[in-house]
Computed example of a mutant assay.
Amino acid sequence: MANSLVSIQILPKPTDGGDVIPLVDEAIRVIDESGVKYEVHPLETTMEGELSQLFLIIEKMNERMIEIGCKNVISQIKVLYQPDGITMDTLTEKYR
């Protein structure tokens, strides 16, 4: 079972001042390719997995933004670390 939930809102700054939505889509693609469970929400994306693995994904997301032409990237991150296990469903099942 996963030991962490990490939510990230990535705010890439394109060098040309253009639309950030395609860049956010690319960041989500990095998450998707990692194979971890995730959910996209209007203002952030939440991932479920091992804490060290999720931080590596965040690092890859930031690096990818620079590779595709961003001047810089702000990542706002929330972390729930629970060594005995945690899932997104555990926290949200009563609302579904």
Rank of each mutant, 00 (worst) to 15 (best):
M1V: 13
M1D: 07
M1W: 08
N3V: 11
S4E: 04
L5I: 13
L5Y: 09
V6S: 02
V6H: 02
V6L: 14
S7A: 15
S7G: 13
S7N: 05
I8A: 04
Q9K: 08
I10L: 07
P12Y: 08
K13W: 05
K13P: 00
P14L: 07
P14I: 06
D16R: 08
G18R: 09
G18E: 06
D19P: 02
D19T: 08
D19K: 12
D19H: 12
D19I: 06
D19W: 08
V20F: 13
I21Q: 09
I21D: 11
I21R: 08
P22S: 11
P22E: 09
D25G: 06
D25Y: 10
E26W: 01
D32R: 04
E33I: 00
S34I: 08
V36H: 06
V36M: 09
V36Q: 05
Y38R: 03
V40Y: 07
V40T: 15
H41P: 00
H41G: 11
L43M: 15
E44D: 09
E44S: 14
T45R: 03
T45A: 02
T46Y: 02
T46K: 03
M47S: 01
E48I: 10
G49T: 11
E50H: 12
L51P: 07
L51I: 15
S52A: 14
Q53F: 11
L54I: 09
L54V: 04
F55G: 01
L56H: 10
L56D: 15
L56A: 13
L56F: 11
I58E: 03
E59S: 15
E59C: 05
M61F: 03
M61C: 05
M61S: 05
N62D: 08
N62H: 11
E63G: 02
E63H: 12
E63T: 08
R64D: 01
M65T: 08
I66P: 04
E67C: 06
I68K: 01
G69T: 04
C70K: 03
C70D: 02
K71Y: 06
K71L: 07
V73D: 03
V73W: 02
S75A: 14
Q76I: 10
I77F: 08
K78Y: 06
L80E: 12
L80T: 04
Q82I: 06
G85L: 12
G85T: 14
I86E: 13
I86Q: 10
T87N: 03
T87W: 05
T87G: 04
T87Y: 05
D89C: 02
D89W: 10
D89Q: 10
L91M: 14
E93N: 14
E93G: 04
K94A: 14
Y95E: 13
